[in-house]
Simulated assay, not measured.
Amino acid sequence: MRVCLIYDCLFPWTVGGAERRMGHLAERLAQQGHDVTYLTRCQWPPDEPPQLPGVRVIAVSRDEPLYGADGNRTIGEPLRFGAGVLRHLLAHGREYDVVHTASFPYFSMLAAGAARRRGGYRLIADWHEVWSASYWRRYVGGPQGRVAHAIQRTCARLPHTAFTFSRLHAERLTDEGLRSEPRIIWEEWADDARMALASADGPRAADTRVEATTVPRSPSVVFAGRLITEKQAPRAVEAIVLAARQVSGLTGTIFGDGPERALVDATIERLDARDVVVAPGFVEPEILQAAMRDALCLLAPSRREGYGLVVIEAAALGVPIVLAAGPDNAATELVDAGVNGVVSQSDDARALADAIVEVHARGARLRASTLAWHTAHLQRVAAQDPLREILAAYAGR
């Protein structure tokens, strides 16, 4: 099958769950013998083009920042990327049986919809998130928010097959006017090797699981994510400092980079917390993995999540997670309170700190139940077989 994947981000040049899902999907499709093209924006030096085995990577727009000084997505980049996608599909659309795009940042999906009559391909879209009208107004302001919401709704009403990754966003997509039933995939992305290591397959994996149920001698809290307003990294710093007053020796690490990096550093300085919290920025995956494995918990106080990949990654290592409840946070669907983590009913720093202290108090029993939760989750994913589900959609089933 000839497949065109579309997203303006490409892992590892841009880091995030959606990027990893799309890149992983491209490689899996290529491994199965499908002809795969990946349309994206340029994110690499001219003399160092991407090398994805079996995948043609085509840059249809220039290298430019995704985020402005205010921490929000810029408007120029998605417009230029959408125009590049339109040009490519008008010229080459007939070379594809399927065009599979991320719905956001919308103009690329509109382009794929506009070129479909000439191309004749089947259109598939990943809806990682569906924002409410009120959230759009908060994000970009009243008039602009109404326009953005109207564009989102137009995309939802295009004839296509829609994949979502949570019940929250499946319901919102239906409310936006999707003409078919959204298909929920219960695993957005998975590194097969790491998942196997974290499962009870073989002596090495079994040893890892035993170690994971032991509470770390030096308790640490890990935050990992892009430092944008929605992720609330400065709030994480405040919560860790407050929890450290109740848990002897507690420290924290803020992994990631982004528009709020300076605010994170300033918060550490303001609280005189250099001995408690460090913020090293982005690090090699092996370093992050080791830090997660040794953590007391993973703290993710994000106000907005489309899925919650970080929950799965933490649970695979037996590490409970602390989340904050909220109307736009679908990650809470993956946390059973007291089983694989704690969901704070507020994103207030004090409430988050109390949740960290609760994880510490629950000790090894919570780590053991987190591993058990992960095993059950993998069984659910295996029963669904996400790749099989995707290929069925490609075939029109």
Rank of each mutant, 00 (worst) to 15 (best):
M1W: 05
L5A: 03
G16I: 13
A18S: 15
E19H: 10
R20H: 09
L25F: 10
A30F: 12
Q31K: 13
Q31H: 13
Q32Y: 00
H34V: 04
V36A: 02
Q51D: 14
R62V: 13
R62M: 09
A69G: 10
A69K: 14
T74D: 06
I75L: 15
L79V: 15
F81I: 08
G82S: 11
G93C: 12
Y106P: 06
L110S: 14
G113Y: 10
R122H: 15
I124S: 07
G141E: 05
R146T: 11
Q152T: 05
A156Q: 13
G177Y: 06
R179A: 08
D192W: 04
D192L: 13
A206R: 14
D207G: 09
R209H: 05
S218Q: 15
S220E: 10
F223C: 03
R226N: 13
L227N: 02
A236C: 01
E238H: 00
A243H: 04
Q246W: 06
Q246V: 09
T251W: 07
I254Q: 02
F255P: 00
D257L: 02
A266E: 03
I268E: 11
A291P: 01
A291C: 04
A295E: 01
R303W: 06
R303F: 02
Y307E: 02
P320L: 13
L323G: 10
A325P: 03
G326V: 05
N329R: 07
V335L: 10
S344L: 07
A353E: 08
A353R: 03
I356W: 02
A361I: 00
G363A: 13
R365Y: 05
T370A: 09
A376M: 07
H377G: 05
A383W: 03
D385R: 07
R388T: 13
A393S: 11
